[in-house]
């Protein structure tokens, strides 16, 4: 593109300027929206976190870092964070491997397993709110799926309480999440398999590889970047999880399924403690960013070996 004569270079300059103007015009609406809905709110969240404010009244009191000092000592917040981490670990351990297995099955089977694909995908089409309501009833002690099955097997009326007790509730929620999100990762890996050149498969088979060897030694290494993206998405998704918990357990029983986002929402929009709510939101932002960056770093190091 480099111009050789004086004449051309001044022409290129004019052209470059016109390109810059055109680019700005095209990008303007995006800049505007990002400024209004991302940059300003994130900054404002940090600003509000230094105030005591109920969110409604015009006056708010500046209290400096008091909210932040409270946050660091707030057992509820760190418990919520712990629950987020537990959910994150189990999401990655359950959803991604199962999604990958389902995709492998569909890739090997081809078109005739389409009905599996359609049915397996169904949970992902339901909104988190709808799933929360469905499982409120499906996991109920009275007339729920597990209670009914247990009663059927034992021949007498048995109640299985999954959402009402402390350690069980979190794992019940993790199960519901696996039900909901595994199809997403399945489609993701189907797409990944679709991107592998069929000639690679043919070459492997001609060289005498079995299907299993092909998957283990060729396909999975080729899917590496997809694993990485899937893990990143699962990680960020688990740390900002909200809809399902809010409508399924509201963080209960006794805060045992409280997450950072539900805690923030309760503080801000139920107790109208928006100063501290903003502080929790800002803390959540910092934690998510740090964990996501650490994860990216760890993964890059691993790939170098």
């Amino acid at each position: 593109m480099a111009s050789k004569t004086e004449n051309k270079s001044s022409l290129a300059k004019v052209r470059g300027k016109r390109v810059a103007v055109a680019a700005t015009v095209f990008l303007l609406p995006t800049f505007l929206l990002i400024a209004v809905y991302f940059i300003y709110p994130v900054i404002d969240t940090f600003v509000i976190s230094t105030y005591k404010w109920n969110g409604i009244s015009a006056t708010r009191t500046f209290i400096g870092l008091q909210n932040w000092v409270n946050l660091v000592k707030d057992k509820n917040f760190w418990d919520a964070f712990k629950h987020n981490v537990v959910i994150m670990v189990f999401s990655i351990l359950l959803q991604i491997p199962i999604g990958m297995l389902l995709a492998t099955f569909l890739d090997a089977g081809g078109r005739k397993f389409n009905i599996f694909k359609i049915i397996w995908f169904l949970p992902y089409l339901m909104s988190s709110v709808a799933i929360a309501f469905l499982f409120t009833y499906a996991l109920a002690t009275n007339g729920g799926i597990f209670s009914s099955l247990a009663s059927l097997i034992q021949g007498k009326k048995v109640t299985v309480d999954l959402l009402g007790r402390s350690p069980h509730a979190l794992f019940a929620v993790i199960g519901v999440m696996a039900w909901q999100y595994t199809p997403f990762y399945m489609v993701y890996f189907i797409a990944g398999y679709g991107n592998i050149d069929t000639t690679i498969y043919e070459a492997a088979i001609i060289d005498g590889a079995t299907r299993g060897q092909y998957v283990r030694q060729i396909a999975i290494p080729l899917l590496g970047p997809i694993f990485k993206t899937a893990c990143t998405m699962s990680l960020i998704g688990s740390l900002k999880y909200f809809d399902l918990i809010w409508n399924l357990t509201q963080g209960g029983p006794v805060n045992s399924t409280e997450l950072m986002a539900t805690y923030m929402y309760k503080l801000s929009f139920q107790q109208f403690n928006m100063g501290y709510g903003s502080c929790v939101a800002a803390g959540m932002f910092i934690l998510i960013t740090v964990i996501a960056l650490l994860f990216q770093k760890a993964f890059v190091v691993k790939e170098d070996y």
Binding site: G16, L27, F38, P41, T45, L239, K240, F285, A292
Partner: peptide, 26 residues
Amino acid sequence: KFRFCGLIYAGIVAMMSVPMHVTLIP
């Protein structure tokens, strides 16, 4: 091709990881 093209692109894409709850109150 214009100046800061890559930077602007990276900036926009980075917004993907901003959780909505951080922006909710503002």
